[in-house]
Write a protein that binds this DNA or RNA. Structure first.
Lengths: 102, 102
DNA sequence: CGACTTTACGGGTCGCGTAAGTATA
DNA sequence: TATACTTACGCGACCCGTAAAGTCG
């Protein structure tokens, strides 16, 4: 499983359709379709039902969607937190935090 | 950023040393070292201080470590939840849930 | 000089894009 | 026959492992 697969999954779940998800992700449809298949294969159960109108979430997909969003949010938060702590340390090393005059 | 990078980071943070982290991950040292560098480059700040004795977490690294663990836990939980919901649906479709006579 | 991290280099794998195929209403 | 998902195929990028180099007490 990769973060790309998780992002693709969320896009498809929210758009209800591989084509629009691909547009939103700025990539072609086939990679999205393939990665969704790989994700379902790894989890061991389908996440969508395929209809001629698009992709509809199964209960397994709904369950995964909530957690997928949490993972992506946690990822952004982790990056932001580390970056903020890093900047703070850099400021401390230059003695520019206590007074905030820098 | 990739899940592999996050896993490598946690291993290095917990082992305090690239070599032991690599052993634990069952891969060679150089990939671990490279991925940690790539992670730091992407975040934009160092996460460790390098000493001749190993790698020591900076405040930014501590901040990232907590979130990294949460991400990996959320990932496992997401897989388990989807798998469980999928099995339940499969049982429902075969009519084997209500009575549990398998 | 010993332990650890980093750089160099070659090979295999993975993922994307284009093009063609399949299916349903 | 229009719309949407899927398979086929070729190519570039990424990642790993081995080997060599750099660094600090």
């Amino acid at each position: 499983m990769s973060l790309a697969q998780i992002r693709y999954f969320v896009a498809v779940a929210e758009e209800g359709n591989v084509g629009r998800a691909a547009d939103r992700l700025h990539i072609a449809q086939p990679p999205v379709s393939r990665q969704i298949q790989a994700l379902e294969a790894e989890i061991g159960t389908p996440l969508f039902v395929r209809t001629p109108r698009g992709m509809r979430l199964l209960p397994s997909g709904e369950a995964f969607l909530h957690r997928a969003r949490r993972i992506l949010n946690a990822l952004e938060e982790a990056t932001a937190a580390a970056r903020a702590a890093g900047l703070t340390s850099a400021e401390v090393e230059r003695g520019t935090v206590a007074s905030r005059r820098g």
